[in-house]
Each structure stands twice: as C-alpha cells, then as structure tokens.
Write a protein that binds this DNA or RNA. Structure first.
Length: 476
DNA sequence: ATGTGC
C-alpha cells in the first residue's frame, strides 16, 4: 500500500478520510514500512467496512492487517444496535474464536532441552493435529449442547482442567448468550470427533522460552521470568465454527439486500443486530466461542498428561486465554458517553487495560495479557492492555505476524523438509503430520512479528511484556 | 481457517 494514499496523523496512525459513502474514517495503526508491505486490498477493505450501517468511531486496521474475506484480517469495527448497526459473519471470520492460550510451566528452558525430542514426539502422538484430525472424545447430542453452552467450564466439569483455569480465560471460560439450537445439525456433526484437536494452517502448539523481558513489573504480574519455559496453544472452533461461518455468510448475503443494506462488496454480508438472522448468528457464534474455549481446555489437559510423563515436576498454570475472531457486546466510552456496542475483532486480540471490570482480579491492575503468536520458528510476544488502548481501537491490538506471501507461493519457494532441517539446526524441533503444511508456514512467508509488535506498542494499542522463542512446535 | 480444490 502506498502511504501517500493516507492522511498521516502521526508516525503510527494513518487515516482514510470519510466521504459521502463512508461516514467514518478508516484508521490504520502501523509504521510506514508496514504500510508499504500491506496489501492494497487492506485499504479497500478497511474503507468498505467504514460504509456499513451503524458503525461507530472508525473502521480500524491493526499493524498485522492483511487481505481477508470481506473485512481485513487485523480489522476492528464496532456497531451500535440503536443506529441500525449490523453483525457480519465475515467480520468475525471462518475460524470463530480462534485464539491463543499461554501456560507457565514452572520449568526452565534447560529442563525442556534435556528431553526436547521425547517431548516433541509425545506431543505429536498425543495431540491430534492436521486437517480433519480426530480426537478420542466423542460427544452425544446432549453433551454437544452442554459443551456449546458451557465452554471451558463444561470441559472442567468433564475433568479436563481445574476451576483455577477458568478465572484465566476471557469470559471466565464460558460465553453467555450461546444458543446451541441455532447451530445446524451439520455443524454439530462435523464437531462430534474434533474436540481436543489442533487443526491445521497457522494453528500450533509450542513449547517456548522466555528470552526477553521488557517490563519487569508486568512480567512479575504475569509470572513470567527470563529463561522460563512456556506452553502456547493456538487454535479455534474447528469444523463447527467453519460450518457456522459458511452457512451464515450465505444467509446474510441474501438478508442484507432484503434489509436494504447496500454492500460495496458481497463478502461483507451482514444483517442488523436487531434482526432475526442477526440474533440467530450471535447465538450460534457464541456457541462456537464456547466450542473453541472447550477445545483449548481439552488440549491443555492433553499437554498436562504429556508433561506429567516427560517432565513430572512440571506444573501447567494457565496465564490467559484470548480469542482473536469474535463479535462481543461491550460498553465503551465514545466522545465521553458510555455506549453499548458490538465489537467485531477479526484477527485482532482484545486488549483491555487496567481497571476494566471484565478482567479477573489477577489482572485488575496490570491490564489483560495480550498473546501474540508469531510465525513458526520465529518469536511470540506477551503484551498487556493499557488504558490508552481502550481509546485507540475499542481495547484491541494485533494478533500475530500476518502473512507476507500466499500459501501457494510459500510451497513453491520452500520444501517442508528443508524448513524442518533449518529450524532443527537452530535448536527448534518441528513436528507435523504434513510436510506440506510446514512449507506453507515457513517463517519467511510471514512479516517480522517484532515489527508488528513494536508498531502496536508505539501506536498505544498494548505494552510489550515479554518475548518468547520456540523450542518445540507441533503444527497442524 | 476448512470433511483444503479447477
């Protein structure tokens, strides 16, 4: 994207001005270099979102923004139901409630290095990964509905984890307002055997080392110290979320016209929040959020089993679990007035600051942990929400590195084996059921996550706490 | 992202 198309507000804030079709601006938070690397489609898509009914403030793009379905990935937009605001299935994304959770282990990276290969092999054998991967768990119809209503709270009741885990998950591990009856039989059927599975694409499970601390006080609040081993899990709602997204996109494309909503792009399919289809989508989407929370909780249980075998002294305590593909009902102060809004975050992490009433006691003074997954073999970051982030983009920050190269181009450029061998030389063990997936996820196919995180901090979206480097990576 | 898809 050519930065000259944008109004430069400051070094890290760029604006597409409103006009007759776009009542609010689009705001991109990024360095000039990141803007240059951004797809031109991000400009178009961020501007298109600014034309949707009932949008409040601006259409925002995070520093890792790239071309998505309708809305950019790395997009944030809030809508007011009182002003005819909409909800959009494409504004949430196909992988509903995809997210990251990080666990502190009570181990040092050296503890891990001593058994690195056994750990990698046991994780591959224990956590199902890859397209169509199936788990041991098979849900009955009744259990499916209980899972879709209860989320991680259901999983803990079933024996996958502890009460303490729940306080360290957004929404306390259970998204309210879920309506399993709005989830199609087909979506439920696809999920029957997929609980506790990682999936494919950019999903991963990593054992990481804390290699740098930026803010000692916040790091202490998050129980992170230099040289510690961390486990991070990145995955979502699997086939169920995908099926819900597919079905409602189709339905909303038809509905939008019937509501007289003019769409600049068919992919922006949406429906008023106060319409019947809008309400049904919210009920189904919240059920998918619970599915993702339960899924990450079950995978956590599997990782605890692996560590109990390989390094018995390990203790896996959940730092936090964040979702980065959601639409959430939240209260925000806009121009000094508290408003009740529906915030779409697509490839954007919630980043609530200190004192926010939705945060658990543990993070009341620190702000919430913001977990940023890098590309395979590079780095991940832990950030914290700030008071400033509340006013920048409705308490949101970036979610990852963001692709630089298409999957197709990455496959042409690297072989999976070559990527695995190169990373092994640097002490990083990759395990995956598919070498093709590894090639698509080669580190060179992504932007530098450090640039993205630095821009997020400089733009006031979140504050850097710690940097994590991978030791073991299980890829789908 | 995905019972990957022309």
């Amino acid at each position: 994207m050519d930065p000259r198309q944008l109004t430069k507000i400051d070094e890290y804030t760029w604006r597409i001005e409103p006009d007759a079709e776009h009542p609010v601006p689009a705001i991109i938070y990024a360095s000039e270099a990141l803007i240059r690397d951004m797809d031109d489609k991000v400009y178009e898509q961020a501007e298109n979102v600014a034309a949707l009914p009932g949008i409040v403030g601006a259409s925002y793009a995070m520093p890792d923004a790239h071309w998505g379905y309708g809305f950019p990935i790395g997009g944030v937009a809030a809508f007011d139901p009182d002003l005819g605001g909409i909800v959009s299935a494409g504004g949430v994304g196909f992988d509903i409630s995809c997210g990251v959770r990080a666990l502190v282990t009570g181990l040092t990276a050296d503890d891990v290095r001593g058994v690195q290969k056994e750990l990698a092999d046991d994780l591959l054998a224990t956590v199902p990964a890859g397209v169509g991967s199936r788990g041991e768990i098979r849900l009955s119809a009744l259990e499916m509905d209980a899972m879709l209503t209860g989320g991680a709270r259901w999983a803990v009741k079933e024996g996958y984890g502890t009460e303490t885990d729940l306080a360290h998950i957004e929404e306390g591990g259970c998204m309210s307002g879920a309506e399993p009856e709005q989830v199609s039989d087909q979506a439920k059927k696809r999920q029957l055997r997929e609980m506790g599975t990682l999936g494919s694409g950019n999903h991963y499970l990593e054992v990481q080392e804390v290699v740098e601390i930026f803010d000692p006080e916040l790091a202490a609040a998050f129980k992170l110290a230099d040289g510690n081993a961390i486990v991070s899990i990145h995955c979502g709602s699997r086939g169920l979320g995908h099926q819900i997204g597919t079905e409602f996109l189709r339905e909303m494309a038809v509905a939008a016209e019937s509501f007289g909503i003019h769409l600049p792009d068919r992919e922006l399919a949406c429906a008023p929040l106060r319409s019947e289809v809008g309400r049904r989508y919210l009920g189904a989407m919240r059920a998918a959020i619970n599915c993702a929370l339960a899924n990450r909780q079950i995978i956590t249980h599997l990782v605890r089993q692996v560590l109990a075998r390989v390094i018995p002294k390990a203790s896996l305590d959940l730092l936090y679990d964040v979702s980065h593909n959601t639409c959430k009902e939240e209260r925000h102060i806009v121009d000094g007035v508290e408003r009740h809004l529906f915030v779409h975050r697509k490839g954007a992490t919630r980043a609530f600051g200190p004192g926010h009433p939705d945060l658990p006691d543990a993070f009341r003074t620190s702000g919430q942990p913001v977990l940023i997954g890098g590309s395979m073999g590079t780095a991940s970051y832990v950030l914290a929400g700030t008071e400033e982030s509340m006013h920048r983009a409705f308490g949101s920050a970036c979610h990852g590195a963001g692709r630089l190269m298409s999957r197709h181009a990455a496959k042409k450029r690297w072989s999976g084996r070559q990527v695995v061998d190169e990373l092994a030389e640097r002490g990083i063990l990759i395990r995956s059921p598919t070498m093709r997936g590894v090639a698509e996820e080669a580190p060179g196919a992504y932007k530098d996550v450090t640039d993205v995180v630095d821009a997020a901090q400089a733009a006031g979206l979140a504050r850097k706490v710690a940097k994590l480097a991978p030791l073991v990576c299980l890829k789908g």
